[in-house]
């Protein structure tokens, strides 16, 4: 965690909070209800330290929406949700006329869209505040057992660093937690940090 100073973490968290605020506004239009979305915590890990316990993911299965983005620095951005929660969220988004059993067949697509909204809001917030241009791939969704999904995430030796944002999402009276994970190479992290420094020193 020595990679980032307290001020840098504060700056980054604020950038992501603004992104989360935008995402919440888009989601609330879909569900026609208030959506709470906040980023209370940001942590940096070496991917070798990562497992379900360090990420406090106590679920057997995980859904992951992934977008690969590039620009002055590149990273894989991913949104992780526990599977049962993911289904509940999709259910809320689709409205109560659809039964929870039927939701499963739409899960893949709907999660892609949900992840896309949240990831884009965060990416565009980074791009705006740090004044840079980012390009991104379309989102893809994978689902599997927690250990398998995490192994898949950390297997990329070129991107050994993980910037992890803990996300709180509540729709109506459902509360759910997800993780926003950015997989970065050492050099990409350095570039990100230098952009944050430039942003902070410009204040």
């Amino acid at each position: 965690m020595n990679w980032l100073s307290e001020l840098q973490i504060d700056g980054l968290t604020e950038v992501f909070n603004i992104g989360a605020g935008r995402a919440a506004a888009s989601l609330s239009e879909i569900v026609c209800d208030e959506v709470q979305l906040s980023v209370p915590r940001l942590q940096l890990y070496n991917s070798s330290e990562i497992n379900a316990a360090t990420l406090t993911l106590n679920s057997l299965r995980l859904g992951a929406v992934k977008q690969r983005f590039s620009g002055p620095f590149s990273a894989d951005a991913m949104l992780l949700f526990t599977e049962e929660r993911a289904l509940e969220i999709v259910h809320d988004m689709m409205g109560s006329q659809v039964s929870i059993e039927d939701v499963a067949e739409f899960e893949q697509e709907a999660m892609c869209e949900l992840g896309n909204i949240i990831l884009n809001a965060c990416l565009s917030s980074i791009a705006n505040l740090l004044n840079l241009t980012l390009e991104s791939s379309l989102p893809s969704y994978t689902i599997g057992d927690t250990d398998g999904v995490l192994r898949g995430i950390i297997s990329d030796a070129n991107q050994p660093l993980m910037l992890v944002l803990h996300i709180d999402l509540s729709i109506e009276n459902r509360h759910s937690q997800g993780l926003l994970v950015f997989l970065l190479s050492t050099s990409s992290l350095q570039k990100l940090v230098s952009h944050i420094d430039r942003f902070i020193s410009g204040i």
Binding site: N17, I18, A20, G21, R22, A24, A25, S28, E34, V35, Q36, S38, S125, N128, L129
Partner: peptide, 23 residues
């Protein structure tokens, strides 16, 4: 606030405060 949803804007107005969205 970064939370730009309508519900917060109307809460602000009800309090007699002004809502301004972040950033």
């Amino acid at each position: 606030s970064a939370n730009i949803q309508e519900s917060h804007q109307s809460r602000a107005a009800a309090l007699g405060a002004k809502f301004v969205g972040k950033p």
